[in-house]
Design a protein around this nucleic acid. Structure first.
Lengths: 339, 339
DNA sequence: CTGAAAGCGCTTACAG
DNA sequence: CTGAAAGCGCTTACAG
């Protein structure tokens, strides 16, 4: 394995000078730079980043933690965030975590090793933030979960109002004449994160406001945020309640499963049952029928996240907790209820 | 920041002994182990992995390189591979690369730093392997692209026969009476990887065998392997040729776009145009209509990859280059051509 | 079983 | 502008 010592020997310069060339340090003669660069090129030398990071105190690239590896919404968002950082001349480093992993502990570890100049969390569990975020000093942004209630001076957050979004989704079904509305997805267990709790409570609130009956036993089925799980949950829901004419799926992936489950039961969407999803992933535009959904504004979420983080990295700004607007997307999966 | 020195000081033992406890070295007294473990716990100490890896010569976890971040097929495959390693008591570490990145150079870098005991490449460009794979000595497996033609003694490969799979796909359309068959997806540029070239040539071969006319100008449209790109390509194809009754989409994502494009033109699937995809991703089972496809055997691909790699890590075995069978999945997107 | 010491491959004051 | 040297936080023979 070639190391910096080999390059030093080969070039006739010292290890220190080679290191300076490697790090684009200004105090190097053009000649030395040229000779050393050539040798590095010839040897195809890559400095060992373990050694580098062990010594280096300067900050490294912004790190993005993505919670959940097959979350299409986060994927879309990540792509946009990456693009926006790039427009600002910043490369980022991405870490994918399991749905159940502790993102804050992982970040603490990475901070020690890599000293990122900033961190973005795509999704997160507030419990972990409460427990140990205090150990992180770099500027951070939490996306899709609000950190407004937390006392940290280095943690901004950008979210969609899930309560309001969910109530708009259900309200849409109600305005189309639906009275028997089922909810599919997420879980009633508050340990599983805020998102599903907020969407369910937003939905419930608007049902109550319209004096429509709703019970967890008859009108709700939990599921993970996947097609397969949404499919099974919808089957169970239709099994136990055949009066439902409108379904609110807590995520678009769940809605995809719901569409198939409904049709496998010999019913049609939207003629027999209307469906609305949540998130606004690309797929909703290609599904047949196109799926009505609450589209989170991915562009804006990405733009504000990057802006805020870069400003706070460069200047001492205080954190913000912003709610990004969403849009109700009509789609083709909702019809007026048949009389 | 707490380091191993702090733990040594706090526990009254030396740094060496703390290190031995950290690495579950046998030669430590129960008392020392207990005291030190408690302090580590109390201080919530995490060893700096940069320092650790810098010194450590023992091999670290198997690393999986995934080429392309939004490739659903690779995601499904990765999940299965992860699961299979776990069943064998092996944790893995995953690196996601851009579609265009040089996976071999990245792997060389990681080998120096992490010394993985084995490597899996999900997708890859043979050109990069030819250029620099010789520098890698760890046992490796390349999945979905055959390395049979390469002279490396530490690189196995597991693939599906793309030529045969594609010809079966088109053959299926032909047997349903289709005579005007269009192909959507991939590119004719051989630089873009083997996969699309092999699928196209497999499709062409069977058309020729059946004496059916096919020209790139009238019957083919390239696209990236995404819904959006598949949608646009299909629109262009239907625009320039309105006699097509069957479409072979080079990937399922492209097929999803094709379905929507066909229906946006006022035509029905499969009544007016039949569609078959490739890969067998989960989504094909939930789409409406269910999409006929060539299902690569993900379970088998994962199983053989893991088995082979683990065997070669433990014992000196020679490499293999296996072709894993696929299945033609019927779906609902193909109908007999109307007379 | 334990400690003192060398060393992994780098970076970075310090001196010249 | 350059080199010699200290040191980052660990691991690992070596000696006892």
């Amino acid at each position: 394995m070639t190391t910096i010592k080999d390059i030093a020997r080969l070039s006739g310069y010292s290890v220190g000078t080679v290191s300076r060339v490697l790090n684009n340090h200004p105090d190097v003669s053009p000649k030395a730079r040229e000779v050393i660069s050539r040798i590095i090129e010839e040897e195809n030398f890559q400095p060992n980043s373990n050694a580098k990071l062990l010594k280096q105190t300067t900050a490294s690239a912004v790190t993005v933690f993505v919670k959940g590896t097959s979350n299409v919404f986060f994927e879309n968002l990540l792509e946009k965030i990456q693009e926006t950082f790039k427009e600002n001349g910043e490369e980022i480093s991405v870490v994918f975590l399991d749905e159940t992993a502790n993102e804050v502990e992982t970040a603490i570890q990475i901070c020690m090793e890599r000293k990122p100049k900033g961190i973005v969390f795509l999704g997160g569990n507030l419990k972990y933030f409460e427990e140990s975020f205090a150990k992180i000093t770099a500027p951070c942004v939490l996306v899709t979960v609000s950190a407004a209630s937390l006392p940290f001076a280095n943690l901004s957050s950008f979210t969609t109002d899930d309560i309001k979004g969910a109530s708009d989704a259900v309200d849409y079904l109600i305005r189309k004449g639906h009275r028997q509305i089922g909810i599919v997805g997420g879980s009633l267990n508050t340990e599983d994160g805020l998102v599903s709790g907020e969407r369910i409570s937003g939905a419930e609130a608007v049902l109550k406001k319209n004096h429509l009956a709703f019970s967890y036993e008859k009108d709700y089925e939990p599921s993970r945020f996947s097609m397969a799980s949404g499919y099974e949950a919808t089957r169970r829901l239709l099994e136990k309640n055949d009066e439902i004419t409108g379904i609110f799926a807590l995520s678009d992936m769940v809605a995809v499963g719901a569409l198939r489950a409904i049709q496998d039961k010999g019913l049609r969407v939207p003629e027999d049952i209307s469906v609305i999803g949540y998130d606004g992933i690309e797929y909703t535009r290609y599904a047949v029928p196109r799926i009505a959904t609450i589209r989170q504004d991915i562009d804006m979420l990405a733009k504000r996240t990057v802006e805020d983080l870069l400003m706070r990295i460069s200047y001492r700004r205080s954190t913000v907790h912003e709610v990004i607007p969403y849009r109700v997307i009509t789609g083709e999966s909702i019809a007026v209820r048949k009389p």
